[in-house]
Design a protein around this nucleic acid. Structure first.
Length: 785
DNA sequence: GTTTAGGGTTGG
């Protein structure tokens, strides 16, 4: 049957609604008529009994009238439209013959949507004409005044021990296990839960929904769920429930005596006194049962036991990505953990939320590392949000954690890990502000915050005393020209170096100091190669070492059978090149690139000296040094650069690379650069960095700080450029000379405004000590003074 | 009217 340009009327809770509709269109508005006004059915329509409708009936300008005995779910279609099926049954008084008294009706688009929202099963009075032909019948449709007074039908709920495979049912249950929704491999998030009821049957449920808000809002075991339209299936010889079309779920707190407040994202849902009673009965029953002798339980930080798994209800204060598989969540619950807490060091500029806290507050903050699948969930969290972290693990003892330092060791500190996966319900759940647990948490936190402020004001008094003792030139006063400026945007007071040394757990400090000394003085010693994967650092090999590697390798350039995807050839060195005249070197060209006219983009070069290699750089964009090893083409040992590109040399990490000459498709590659080549060769590239130790001085003390991560922005020069470019090198040297003039009096050195970050690191003896790094600071160029 | 997952910890 086609539903087309027509009108549909029905009674709703708000009154009578007339929905003009047009087939396949969603543009018609809904008109809500006041109670008591009659349905306005166009005069040309004629009512016919449903029993007379056949597939060959001409239903032009005909209407039917009846009660909605089935209202299907609103089903979204791909094109943002909807479809809804209903069954209309004719009033029995008009249809004494019992045959064919009902008809299936399919609604489309906004009509389906409006119908779904406004109409209840049993109270609907639709009219179904066909508008295709012009009005023919002038007879007024016999709209009856007596509307159906049938009540909305009650939902029936299946007991969990009576589920039949294949049936679609509604159920109530007490949650005995649950996982927070997690991303499935398909299109949806998946919730996994297990419920039980008076029958004591425990039934696993799997809920797939694309939207998180449509998932059951379960916060703890004992919560009560009511699910509509779940399908019983057999899996592993047990009945399980899976959501099916029209699924909806409402969750209630399982605490006996608590208000029965439904948690749901459904815009409207059925709830009557019977539901109220069911929830209360389940609560009472559950309270008398040992339903979940749970492995984990909600524990405040003050009661955390090392090695234990537990659920933590807390507030998120700040977060920071540590690496791609790990994110740091800084949380608190207002209680103090009796164990020393491990502090993870991250850079301030990647931190979201408050960067530093008073010492008192810092003692209450737990650093939680969340891994793998939880990283994506953590990404969406905003500082301030209340969380429950499920199946968190507290681990005591020395732990190596990812972070700024290469191996940061904090002995006997308690670390919190949310390991990857969802086993045992592992996950992060957001608690709504109105949940009783959050209300309770807020009370504890607010009490602390008052104390915190008192403590802070005391601290400020002592700071003031310190100020009096400090010589004026090292304080805020902006009376001095500074050669550096901060770009961090932290809003904090400057402190003296002696205060920095005393401030223990503080993370970021602003200081004004002079550069007393620094090392190394020779720039090439400050240049290092750093592996972002294994965090190792090494010196850049000097030319002497490279020359010997090349000369050693040139002895291995005997006969070699190249792979089929290269063409071997000879290349002559430029005439002015030193060394044996007319010396020709073996090169290998990549046939695929030759076909694309990019012959000179990449070549493999065999048997050259370092100097010859450099000569050839004028003619080729990328040269990969190779040698013959056992008659096969192979790469150099990674002590040497794997690639020469312009004046730059690129190195790979010996530990993290699986280097080999192998075929690679260059199709679609716009620009062949060091990254693409490293990837093609299975090389983990090393990054050039600058590393210096600076000795700072102010009126109160001296302090050694490192310049590393932020060295490039400090100097305005990239370390990679500094590795190859004389101009970049000069720039760095000139800056250091101006900040710390050779031979001068330290008192006359320029003052520097610096942002320092403190972190824990292990020294050579395995001792943990506090180190400092210059961050978010740049040199003020002379031109801008 | 499709798919996803189908509880059960070791590990940064």
């Amino acid at each position: 049957m086609r539903v087309a340009e027509s009108a549909c009327q029905f009674e709703s809770k708000r009154g009578k609604t007339a929905v003009p509709l047009r087939s396949h269109l969603d543009v018609m508005p809904v008109h809500v008529l006041l109670e008591g006004t009659g349905p306005q059915i166009p005069a040309h329509l004629t009512r016919i009994p449903i029993s007379l409708i056949t597939t060959s009936t001409d239903v032009t300008d005909k209407i039917v009238k009846g009660k909605v005995v089935h209202k299907g779910p609103l089903v979204p279609l791909n094109n943002d439209s909807f479809i809804l099926k209903m069954v209309i049954q004719e009033d029995s008084m008009l249809n004494s013959s019992s045959q064919n008294s009902s008809v299936n009706v399919v609604l489309f688009g906004s009509l389906a949507k409006n119908f779904s929202q406004s109409a209840n099963q049993g109270v609907l009075r639709p009219v179904l004409p066909n508008p295709r032909s012009p009005p023919a019948n002038k007879r007024r449709s016999p709209v009856s005044a007596e509307l159906s007074s049938a009540k909305a039908p009650k939902y029936t709920y299946a007991k969990l021990d009576s589920l039949k495979a294949g049936s679609v049912v509604n159920v109530y249950g007490v949650v005995v296990f649950f996982k927070q929704p997690f991303k499935s491999r398909g299109t949806d998030f998946c919730s996994s839960l297990k419920i039980t009821d008076h029958s004591n049957e425990k039934i696993g449920c799997t809920i797939f929904c694309e939207k998180l808000e449509d998932h059951p809002k379960i916060f703890r075991n004992g919560d009560i769920v009511r699910m509509h339209r779940v399908k019983a299936q057999v899996f592993n010889k047990s009945i399980t429930l899976v959501n099916t079309f029209g699924f909806s779920v409402v969750t209630f707190d399982g605490v006996k005596g608590a208000p029965v407040e439904p948690r749901t994202s459904s815009r409207s849902f059925h709830f009557d006194p019977d539901d109220q009673r069911t929830v209360e009965e389940l609560r009472s029953w559950a309270a008398s049962q040992a339903l979940f002798a749970s492995v984990t339980s909600t524990v405040p930080l003050s009661a955390v036991q090392p090695k234990a798994y537990f659920d933590l209800t807390c507030q998120l204060l700040a977060k920071a990505p540590v690496d791609t598989t790990c994110t740091l969540l800084r949380v608190w619950d207002g209680t103090r953990c009796p164990h020393t807490l491990l502090k993870v060091i991250v850079e301030p500029h990647v931190t979201e939320g408050q960067l530093s806290f008073s010492k008192e507050r810092e003692n209450l903050i737990a650093d939680v590392l969340v891994y793998d699948n939880h990283v994506e969930v953590a990404r969406k969290l905003k500082p301030g949000v209340f969380l429950r972290i499920y199946n968190l693990r507290a681990i005591a003892g020395s732990s190596t954690v990812p972070g700024l330092t290469r191996s940061q060791l904090q002995v006997d500190h308690l670390a919190f890990h949310l390991h990857g996966g969802t086993s045992y319900g592992r996950g992060i759940g957001i608690l709504p502000d109105n949940s009783p647990d959050v209300q309770e948490l807020k009370r504890v936190i607010e009490a602390f915050q008052e104390n915190d402020e008192e403590a802070l004001s005391e601290l400020n008094d002592s700071d003031l005393l310190e100020v009096w003792k400090t010589p004026p030139e090292s304080l805020d006063g902006e009376t001095l020209d500074c050669s550096t400026e901060r770009s961090c945007g932290h809003d904090m007071q400057k402190v003296t170096l002696s205060e920095v040394k005393r401030s223990g757990l503080g993370r970021v400090h602003h200081v004004r100091a002079q550069l007393k000394a620094y090392e190394p003085h020779r720039l090439h010693e400050a240049l290092k190669l750093y592996c972002s994967k294994c965090k190792s650092m090494q010196d850049v090999p000097d030319d002497e070492l490279l020359e010997s590697i090349f000369s050693e390798a040139s002895k291995d350039c005997g006969p070699c059978s190249p792979p089929p995807w290269v063409l071997s050839g000879q290349v002559s060195l430029p005439r002015h090149a030193p060394g044996p005249s007319n010396r020709a070197l073996t090169v290998y060209l990549l046939t695929q690139l030759m076909f694309e006219g990019k012959t000179k983009d990449v070549i493999l070069l065999m048997g050259s000296t370092l100097e010859e290699m450099c000569q050839l750089m004028a003619s080729y964009q990328n040269i990969i040094p190779v040698r013959a090893s056992g008659g096969h083409l192979s790469l150099f040992d990674l002590s040497a650069p794997f690639l020469f590109r312009g004046r730059k040399r690129y190195y790979g990490c010996k530990r993290c690379s699986k280097a080999a000459v192998r075929e690679q498709s260059w199709e679609g590659v716009e620009m062949i650069d060091e990254k693409i080549i490293a990837e093609a060769l299975g090389i983990q590239p090393l990054q050039f960095i600058l590393l210096m130790k600076l000795e700072l001085q102010d009126a109160t003390d001296t302090l050694d700080v490192f310049m590393w991560r932020h060295a490039e922005s400090f100097f305005g020069v990239s370390a990679e450029d500094a590795s190859a470019n004389q101009e970049a090198q000069n720039s760095i040297c000139q800056i250091m000379d101006s900040l710390c003039p050779p031979g001068g009096n330290v008192g006359q050195h320029p003052w520097l405004d610096l942002c320092l970050m403190a972190y824990q690191a292990e020294d050579d003896d395995g001792q943990t000590k506090t180190c400092y790094q210059v961050c978010h600071t740049t040199v003020v160029k002379p031109s801008s003074e």
